[in-house]
């Protein structure tokens, strides 16, 4: 674990991603301190306060209800992060369990579980999520569950292949030979070895969950009692921000999503580079092959 941390610190992409995520987390945690206004507060709306341009009073302008966009933006981070973490937790637990069982036991169980995974993998996520949320109530809880139970297939496949490669290792075989209980082996020998990969994968699952939440919210399936970045965009888009030229209502929430998702993607990419490093060298690369005096090649490749 210590090595992993060391390696991560040397990986520029990973560090940048981590910083981006931590900054968003801090913003969400200290929202009440950072936000100039309380979004839940009732205000008197005048015609002038609707889609007001950015000013000293409202650095990011106001929205269709005359509320401060900056405050909404700061609080909105809470929703995205909540959905991202909890939904991906569900996905990783389901996918991890299926992957571990499938990879460890193999045979018929593996076949059955992987076929099921394939079937779920093929069914398009977003339409199914839309249908599920539309048929139930669009509460934050439901959104988290729906995104969670639709996002596990990638994890399952990854964990399965890692489990298969790990279970052939000597000490696992030895534990098996001395008759250790399969669940014991799974928990004490295999799980710790699969974990790093699962963590790396989780970061990517989080980014997908956040994107899915924003898409659902944009399509009008957000929790009405909260205001996520996706919902801010939905309101702005459907309530005339385009025609009023109120770009400020459209820019901040979108940038927030990009920031957070990019943070997760970079961190995930960094993890991946650490876990399975590849040389990235190939036969067509120009090498400064010859270091001789008087050679043309040196001049040609500069």
């Amino acid at each position: 674990m210590r090595d992993f941390w060391q390696a991560l610190r040397r990986n520029r992409m990973g560090v940048i991603g981590l910083i981006m995520i931590v900054l968003t987390l801090l913003m969400a945690i200290f929202a009440p301190l950072l936000a100039p206004y309380n979004p839940k507060e009732r205000i008197r709306v005048t015609l002038d306060s609707i889609y007001a341009k950015p000013s000293l009073e409202h650095p990011f302008g106001t929205d269709d209800a005359g509320k401060d966009v900056l405050s909404n933006f700061i609080y909105g981070a809470r929703v995205s992060l909540t959905v991202g973490f909890f939904a991906s937790f569900i996905s990783v637990v389901i996918g991890g369990t299926i992957g571990l069982i499938s990879g460890f036991f193999g045979g018929k169980i593996d076949n059955l579980l992987m076929r099921f995974t394939d079937i779920v993998l093929v069914i398009p996520d977003l339409p199914l999520a839309v249908v599920l949320v539309a048929l139930t109530k669009p509460s934050l809880m439901n959104i988290i569950i729906v995104i969670g139970i639709l996002g596990w297939t990638g994890t399952a496949r990854l964990v399965r292949s890692q489990t298969i490669s790990v279970k052939e290792r000597k000490f696992v075989l030895r534990a098996k030979a001395i008759g250790a209980h399969p669940l014991y082996i799974l928990r004490n020998h295999i799980f710790p070895l699969v974990l790093p990969l699962m963590i790396a994968n989780t970061v990517l699952v989080i980014s997908l969950a956040i994107l899915n939440e924003s898409a659902l919210a944009f399509l009008g399936l957000g929790d009405p009692s909260t205001l996520s970045w996706g919902q801010m965009l939905n309101f702005a888009f459907t309530r005339g921000a385009m025609s009023s030229g109120a770009w400020w209502a459209l820019l901040a929430p979108g940038l927030g999503i990009v920031w957070l998702v990019l943070g997760c993607t970079l961190l995930g990419q960094g993890f991946q580079q650490i876990l399975n490093p590849r040389l990235e060298s190939h036969h067509l690369q120009k090498s400064e092959m010859i270091a001789l005096e008087g050679s043309h090649v040196q001049q040609a490749t500069g």
Partner: peptide, 29 residues
């Protein structure tokens, strides 16, 4: 044949093929 991988580096020498030094030909030749 001057086909070493990127890590490989010819630091000295001559390869005379029919009297022509291959190491000092241009990439195209």
């Amino acid at each position: 044949l001057r086909l070493l991988p990127q890590a490989g580096r010819i630091v000295a020498g001559e390869v005379l093929f029919n009297g022509r030094d291959l190491l000092r030909l241009s990439e195209n030749d």
